[in-house]
Design a protein around this nucleic acid. Structure first.
Lengths: 173, 173
DNA sequence: TTTTCCATGTAACTCGTTACATGATTTC
DNA sequence: GAAATCATGTAACGAGTTACATGGAAAA
């Protein structure tokens, strides 16, 4: 039973303030790109679903002659549900099976040189991702988004170290 | 374009020797539980698909009056495809977004005590997973499955350390 | 004047899981 | 006599992505 992370994310964003879908999608795109890859259609659909379940309420709104919006607010039941999802999500965490484990199993089907070259590419990608996250604007005191980014940095550092050790074992330059 | 890890896994297992689906599924269930959660029906379906694409060939076989089997062998084209998937998979690795990042974003919606309690549960789960992987029978010299398990151990250790540091920051006992 | 922004969706599709079916055989 | 093993699948479902539609207003 995987915790419904996308619903948790949307509810969490609505905990701060009532928002309409476009607004939420923009926030995700601009600030949470490293954390989630949820697509806009998906967000709209889930907001709909949450409204159907009365975890959020929706009221229509219009500004000038802009397209009409649906402003979502989290309900009392929604807050309970959010907290329940949050507790489960925090307690459980990842499954321990990480993406990218399977290719490793077959490393020895490549020559040492080729394996090293692939791993170096991977290492560079990890370094780039680290660099990117380190230059991200900080918001708080290790809370909120920053905490998640911090988590990613830690794991990316470990990943980088590990790749380097494998390259060494393979006798790379 | 996420690398097709499941196809890579099946092709990789067929690189060692020709096998029938049941055999493959058994191996996965007994030896790769920490690495993948692919279901049997899924494996059968993908083997079918790979046969359709001529990446593997299938021949029927029957032993005594057991149910007939389909023994799959990887073809020359299949080996090429396998190596291509392998190179991509090794070079790319994970996206940097890890499962369990989202709940972290909302940690401060819980009281410090409750957050600590959740994280301690998570820490215990990580420790259990570490323990389990450390007691797994080793096969080779840091190659094959062992390498993937090694990778998981490294990341789980980092995860554990990180959780401990967060607990400390929150003033946990 | 073409592009981008605003704002919400629908329809078709992919990928994978769940639950079930089959039927002989060996084990409890 | 009941249950597990062997061996392969099918059908229904669910979650999410992709590509597209809409239509006015503001920006390039």
């Amino acid at each position: 039973m995987p915790v419904d992370e996308r619903a948790l994310l949307l509810l969490g964003l609505l905990m701060t303030q009532s928002q309409h879908g476009y607004q939420i999608n923009e926030f995700i795109e601009k600030n949470l790109a490293t954390i989630t890859d949820m697509k806009k259609s998906t967000a709209y659909a889930i907001l709909d679903r949450l409204a159907g379940a009365a975890y959020v309420s929706a009221r229509a709104e219009q500004e000038g002659n802009r397209p009409p919006r649906k402003v979502y607010s989290i309900t009392a039941t929604g807050e309970d549900y959010f907290l329940a999802l949050l507790r489960r999500g925090l307690s459980i965490g990842g499954s321990g099976a990480f993406a990218g484990d399977i290719p490793l199993m077959f490393l020895d089907h490549l020559s040492a040189e080729e394996a090293v070259s692939c791993l170096q590419t991977r290492l560079e990608s990890v370094q780039d991702q680290l660099e990117h996250r380190r230059h991200l604007p900080r918001h708080g005191f290790g809370r909120g988004v920053d905490l998640a980014v911090d988590h990613q940095i830690t794991l990316l550092e470990a990943e980088g170290q590990w790749i380097r050790s494998v390259i060494e074992r393979l006798g790379g330059d």
